[in-house]
């Protein structure tokens, strides 16, 4: 999977890394059980700080997207239903409010969600 870090973006690098791995897993670019680069290797490769990579991996582990092991390093978690993080639900609530304020009906919002869901599944 190709990761890209945009240093002009307002999103912090650890957030960009976390988001790309989540999207990668959802789109099937990263398979369950697939080995991820070690923190050191990813930091060396990208030139970003080891602490930044470590922070992203910690968040991913807390959210259940990856597992880490001292011997085998980080791996994509074997799929199962992860608990939805509270922050994600908060964000979803905010985005739904924004769409409602933009004048979209429930059906229209669901239609957009379905289209995006299908698009991601086909990538």
């Amino acid at each position: 999977m190709i990761l890209n870090f945009d240093f002009n973006s307002s999103a912090p690098i650890y957030q960009q890394l976390r988001n790309q791995i989540v999207v990668g897993i959802a789109e099937g670019k990263l398979k369950p059980g697939e080995q991820l680069p070690t923190i050191r290797a990813l930091a060396e490769e990208s030139g970003i700080n080891m602490m930044t990579v470590s922070k992203a991996y910690q968040i991913l582990k807390q959210e259940g997207y990856i597992t880490t092991d001292r011997r085998s390093g980080a791996k994509v978690a074997v799929s199962g239903r992860n608990e939805i993080p509270a922050a994600t639900l908060e964000q979803l609530r905010l985005h739904l409010s924004e769409l409602r304020l933009a004048g979209l009906t429930k059906e229209e919002i669901l239609q957009i969600c379905e289209t995006l869901y299908e698009e991601d599944g086909n990538k």
Binding site: L3, F5, L36, E45
Partner: peptide, 14 residues
């Protein structure tokens, strides 16, 4: 192309 981007192929490292 766009600048200030770094690309990493996770399968090619380590």
């Amino acid at each position: 192309k766009e600048s200030r981007k770094i690309y990493v192929d996770t399968r090619a490292i380590g």
